[in-house]
């Protein structure tokens, strides 16, 4: 019974995505579509970052680095898969093949970003608070400098796969939101599982959690790997939307933008992270008309929001939404 329900929901979802994708393509200008796609990509970023920063309470300032790894790995994989399979400018893959190539690339992106999360997380997650923030920031800078200095990946000018028209623009509504729903469901379920409870326990009191027999370092590294992998997928989608990936796009500003998303939405809340992600993607673009005062207005808006709702738009200090979901889930089970 459950299975048929799930299957039905999945099929309906995919069909809906497909129809919306078609409708956007046919009726909506590219500018607006682009912003919608950025909402989806930001949502993955925010939910991914939220797992480690919000749920586990380990403040990372370095997720732009994982995004970079995901972006480069995805782009590299797609470009080489294409040339390996004999596709070229004159032999463009069919739309379904494009999506398949992109998705395989995204798996590579997730894999490498996850590995980076492991490499960075294993040593640094033994630290706490400010120290962790500084160490993750340092790692992100190292990752960015590695890309800046790798000639094969375009160096400072950025990676375009050696093609005049840049990386193929395969990122569209269907694939962004399919991956977004997939990852958000996955991370959502993880957050509300026994693992998620352990992560929240670490956030509340690490020593007490350790005393309960939970290997806190292992749990934190696990959260870091999943978080990095999700952010890596977002990076891959970003790469194939932009057409060029530049090391400069993965500076600390990017990490800060991600943190703004989860703070706006409510730290530790999955749906809050999504709302924050959409807020960040839409607000700046919506303020285009006021030209150079845009960033000023944006900053004031953020300050105002933080004064009015320091807990974020959705999340309360007790993180109402997860609690609410947990209760309901308990009731259903």
């Amino acid at each position: 019974m459950i299975w048929t329900y799930r299957t039905a929901v999945s099929i309906a979802l995919i069909a809906a995505l497909f129809v919306i994708n078609w409708a956007l393509d046919a009726f909506v200008i590219e500018y607006v579509v682009r912003i919608i796609l950025q909402c989806g990509i930001n949502a993955i970023l925010a939910v991914g970052l939220n797992l480690i920063n919000g749920t586990t309470g380990q403040f990372s300032l370095g997720h732009a680095g994982f995004m970079a790894v995901g972006a480069y790995a995805t782009a590299f994989a797609v470009i080489h898969l294409e040339s390996g399979l004999g596709f070229s400018a004159s032999n463009i893959p069919a739309p379904w093949m494009q999506g398949l190539l992109l998705s395989v690339g995204l798996l590579f992106g997730a894999l490498f970003a996850g590995l980076a999360g492991l490499l960075v997380g294993a040593p640094s997650l033994r630290l706490r608070g400010d120290y962790l923030a500084i160490v993750t920031l340092g790692f992100a800078e190292i990752i960015r400098l590695i890309f800046t200095n790798t000639e094969a990946l375009g160096g400072a000018t950025g990676y375009s796969g050696g093609r005049p028209l840049g990386l193929p623009v395969y990122t569209n509504f269907f694939w962004v939101f399919l991956w977004a729903i997939l990852l958000i469901t996955l991370i959502g379920n993880f957050t509300f599982s026994s693992y998620g409870r352990a992560l929240r326990a670490i956030r509340e009191d690490e020593i007490a959690t350790e005393a309960l027999g939970i290997n806190t370092t292992r749990m934190k590294v696990l959260a870091s790997v999943i978080s990095a992998a999700a952010v890596g997928v977002a990076g891959g989608l970003f790469a194939h939307l932009m057409g060029t990936i530049r090391p400069d796009d993965f500076k600390m500003d990017r990490s800060v933008a991600m943190i703004v998303m989860i703070l706006i939405g409510g730290l530790g809340s999955v749906s809050g992270a999504i709302i924050g992600a959409i807020f960040v993607a839409v607000t700046l673009e919506a303020m285009r008309d006021i030209q150079q005062y845009r960033l000023l207005a944006y900053s004031l808006l953020l300050i105002g929001l933080m004064i009015a709702r320091p807990q974020g738009l959705l999340g309360s200090r007790e993180l109402r939404l997860p609690a609410f979901l947990r209760r309901k889930r308990g009731g259903a089970a």
Partner: peptide, 19 residues
């Protein structure tokens, strides 16, 4: 079934912003 709450909420929100 409630697992889909997050997804449903997400869909609702994204379709709202989309509109």
């Amino acid at each position: 079934m409630t697992r889909f709450s997050a997804a449903r909420r997400f869909l609702l929100l994204s379709s709202m912003s989309l509109a």
